[in-house]
Amino acid sequence: MINFNQVYKRYPNQYEALSGLSFHLERGEMAFLTGHSGAGKSTLLKLIALIERSTHGQVIINNQNLGRMPKWKVPYYRRMIGLVFQDHNLLHDRTVFDNVALPLIISGENHREIGRRVRAALDKVGLLGKERNLPIALSGGEQQRVGIARAVVNRPPILLADEPTGNLDPELSQEIMQLFEQFNQVGVTVFIASHDHDLISRMPYRRIVLQNGRLAE
């Protein structure tokens, strides 16, 4: 599902974030991406989401070679990837419902379908009662769950998360991870960047460890 083949990423200032990285994630797999800060975790996720492109090597996601993808196709490609961020990236002038509905509005779903799917997603993250609230009225953990609901609302086959529990206490972090597990159980490929070693060592998933832009074995 996620396939990196000798991928290099060099920034204009000659800093090499990824150096010949190769790894493979199966369809329906759940895995963690770890490594100390600056090891290239964020860069790797950005390459998958096509926020950035690799300098060398192939990134093949869901059988699509991202290096060959024309610019106009990028938005459509991104719709099959759910993104969860450390700082949630919610729109603070819109209700929880409107935040979660955004991907569906973008892909042109009809009104009824949007209502149905948004409520289903909010139900799954346990926030059904808060759809009329503004994000600012929610706790940090709840905001992160809104972010997750938005990431899964259009049922993407891949879910990427960049430090999703970075700002949460251990108990809330555990809940969030359980949410990711639930999505993985229904077939979503889940890839989570995290440096929360306590948390991920207790979970039975593969760990891809980065060190200076390479795999650390």
Binding site: A49, I51, W72, P75, Y76, Y77, R78, R79, L83, N89, L90, L91, L102, P103, I106, S107, R150
Partner: peptide, 16 residues
């Protein structure tokens, strides 16, 4: 700007 960035992240086209 923030809104535009988010829209692009969740797959909004330039037209959108």
């Amino acid at each position: 700007q923030a809104e535009i960035r988010v829209i692009k992240l969740v797959g909004g086209t330039n037209a959108f």
